[in-house]
Design a protein around this nucleic acid. Structure first.
Length: 502
DNA sequence: AAAAAAG
């Protein structure tokens, strides 16, 4: 791997300003002004925090006052410290009783829960507070043991928390601080009934902090139900694309996607990148493909075991992995410092997901890059994204790939599939021909057949399926490799089927 | 259309 060595404009001596000197020895003035106590100021000074971010500046004093807070903010705005720091301050001084956590933080994903827990450990370094992480996929008895000893802060995903409650492992009657984080995502994922149930188990007299990246009407209704006279705080307009992110869109044929991605990765100065796929199985396929091509890559999606999920994320954060192929499990919240690139290998179906995905880069004022691959079928989804963000995504070209154009409007529909994702057998005659609209459209074929050489097609398939169609060796009949469009998928599917059987 | 979270 070739590392680009940058000539630094400043020598280390020049970089050490009086400001830096002061910050390492004394609490940062900005945070002290917010009313945080000395042990917390010391911890955050050691972490290198200088000045509070806007959300911290606005939220911390009100949380310390015991007010409810309704915050519109995404991760990367310093939101987490905005609630952990004052919570630590409030909780310090008295002790937790067995199985009666004094505060509860609800997170939509396990990775986010872990991240918040790490924040508590760092920020509470000089305090004697305990926490428990209550999430699925890991030993319940270990989690129970911690709870029995008594915890000040419980950080949980809703499913496991309720499970634990039903098994009488937890009493929530003394939980006087509640944080609902990433409320919009909880809503998207259908967790709201669980959240409502959990809230009903908490005392009515409590302090509630409610955060969401957007404040859609449904979210606001929830906030109204959970909060009392909240202080409202907003720091980032929803659905905006930060100006520090360079975006680009590559229109490419389906079978060229992996090749296009590899070329982009090699061409760009990629420090570390998230690569999003829409489906878990595509995460696996792309991950294996990148490994075969000797990239430093890992994979992350919700069907992987929890220890592997955390271990992979750790490695990626530590820089041991350069690329992380992932599903939308990583689209929101996960805070990875200095991510240079986000690649959307698939166009997300929900335009908001695009905003969340690319929001993983271009953070903390650093330059970010967000490139997306689109196939001719993705036109509608791309237009929806551009409409939402109000910014067209500049079209960029990747050298050496077949030029393609958007599919005709009526041709965008996917062919219905038979059971198990395998197209119905040829007997279903309606499917043997392209839709009439396509034949009549008069557009040039998206991929000129003459340019799809058997070698190219074979390479593409091998990338996908390993050895290719079994039984033909290198003498595979040309018709199986390049024919009219509708059959390509069928050939692949049958090859896949053959491989499974053989 | 699919992802996440309780197994």
């Amino acid at each position: 791997m070739i590392e680009t060595t940058t000539a630094y404009a400043e020598t280390p001596e020049h970089a050490t300003s009086p400001d830096d000197m002061e910050a390492t020895t004394e609490p940062p003035g900005g945070f002290a002004r917010l009313g945080l106590s000395e042990p917390i100021l010391r911890a955050i000074a050691e972490l290198g925090y200088r000045e509070p971010t806007p959300i911290q500046e606005q939220a911390i004093p009100f949380v310390l006052m015991g007010r409810d807070v309704l915050g519109t903010a995404q991760t990367g705005t310093g939101k987490t410290a905005g609630f952990t720091l004052p919570m630590l301050d409030i909780l310090t001084g008295s002790r937790a009783r067995a199985r009666m956590p004094r505060s509860l933080i609800l997170e939509p994903t396990r990775e986010l829960a872990l991240q918040v827990a790490e924040n508590f450990v760092q920020h509470g370094k000089y305090l004697k507070l305990s926490h428990a992480l209550i999430i699925g996929g890991e030993s319940m008895s270990d989690q129970k043991d911690v709870l029995t000893r008594g915890v000040d802060v419980l950080i949980a995903t809703p499913g496991r928390l309720l499970d634990m409650f039903e098994r009488s492992g937890i009493l929530l009657s003394d939980t006087r601080i509640l944080v609902i984080d990433e409320a919009d995502r909880m809503l998207d994922m259908g967790f709201i009934p669980d959240v409502e149930r959990i809230v009903s188990l908490l005392p009515a007299t409590r302090q509630t902090l409610f955060f969401s990246a957007t404040m859609a009407p449904e979210i606001r209704r929830l906030a109204d139900a959970f909060l009392r006279n909240p202080k409202e705080i907003a720091v980032a307009p929803p659905a905006s694309v930060a100006t520090t992110i360079t975006t680009g869109l590559v229109l490419v044929a389906e079978h060229d996607k992996r090749e296009a991605l590899r070329r982009m990765i090699r061409h760009e100065q990629v420090q570390n990148a998230l690569i999003f796929c829409n489906r878990k199985r595509d995460v696996e396929i792309l991950y294996r493909s990148l490994m075969r091509h000797k990239f430093s890559a890992g994979a992350l999606h919700g069907d992987m075991s929890q220890p592997v999920r955390f271990a992979t994320l750790d490695k990626f954060k530590a820089g041991e992995l350069k690329l992380l192929v992932c599903s939308d499990v990583a689209a929101r919240g996960i805070d990875i410092g200095g991510l240079s690139h986000v690649f959307n290998f698939d166009v997300p179906h929900h335009p908001e997901d695009y905003v969340h995905r690319i929001g993983r880069t271009g953070r903390a004022g650093l330059e970010g890059h967000a490139y997306m691959l689109a196939t001719p079928d993705d036109r509608v989804a791309v237009e929806a994204i551009e409409k939402l963000t109000g910014q067209p995504i500049p079209r960029i070209a990747v050298e050496g790939l077949d030029p393609v154009e958007w599919a005709a409007e009526l041709g965008k529909k996917r062919k219905p599939r038979g059971r198990h994702g395998v197209p119905s057998q040829p007997g279903a005659k309606a499917r043997a021909k392209p839709p009439a609209s396509k034949r009549l459209a008069g557009k040039p074929s998206a991929v000129p057949t003459s340019e799809v050489t058997p070698a190219r097609a074979r390479r593409s398939r091998e990338d996908d399926l390993g050895p290719g169609v079994l039984g033909f060796g290198d003498e595979m009949p040309a018709f199986m490799l390049v024919t009219a469009r509708p059959s390509r998928r069928r050939v692949r599917a049958s090859a896949q089927k053959q491989e499974k059987q053989g």
